[in-house]
Design a protein around this nucleic acid. Structure first.
Lengths: 108, 108
DNA sequence: GTAAGCTACTTTGCATAACAAGGTAGCTGT
DNA sequence: ACAGCTACCTTGTTATGCAAAGTAGCTTAC
């Protein structure tokens, strides 16, 4: 219902790729990281489906690993295709950002 | 299919509000303006539904006016609610933009 | 030992938005 | 009268984020 949620469309996927690219990680931690970055309203119902989709598209790969505390974690890392997709996402973000900034910028 | 289109989600509506806010305009000209700003892949199939939606939500109002050349144009202008929605959009854009930039920024 | 609470993953169903594709019609110039 | 531009509208498809609910392992406290 809120514009806020709509603004995330397409962006979340790229952000998740970027965070995984920095360091392999798992779903639950991703939700914490995103919140630290300021994307506070991202729920697990958003994150896990994206991870499954990215995996299906062969952009990431996941392996179960034991955790010292709590249940097993599924650590994901980027594939080569994933790294390319990330680069493409960043380019697309830039080509969207500039026009939007120009449009919403108040002229003096 | 492209990430590109997905990135526009939610953004287009705000951009259209902003352009109309600067100066009342009509659908066909909007497509030209958006292209000038660099959003080149926005088709009329995207613009007109958004205009109708914004009108239904009482964020804009439209009136038919004769054109000196060609068919009549439907000029839109923002309502008070539309101006508030635009301000809200800009705030939301900022609160999305900063986290995204931080996430995709390469650390040195 | 058992209940509470955190960690961690998954699935289903829904609402929304952009878009391709196609259609309608007015006006101008040749 | 035809082409080409202007201008608007509609239908159906697809992608995405999310709420909601479920499952289960582990730890701590009582």
């Amino acid at each position: 219902m809120s514009l806020r949620s709509q603004l995330l469309k397409g962006v979340l996927e790229g952000c998740i790729l970027s965070i995984i690219n920095r360091q392999p990680t798992y779903g639950y931690e991703l939700s914490v990281r995103l919140q630290e970055f300021g994307l506070s309203d991202v729920s697990e119902g958003s994150i896990y489906p994206i991870l499954l989709r990215l995996q299906k598209e062969k952009l990431i790969e996941g392996t179960m690993q034991k955790s010292e505390l709590g249940p097993k974690r599924k650590y994901y890392h980027l594939t080569e295709a994933g790294k390319e997709a990330l680069i493409e996402f960043i380019e697309q973000w830039e080509t969207i950002k500039l026009p939007v900034e120009n449009i919403i910028k108040k002229e003096e």
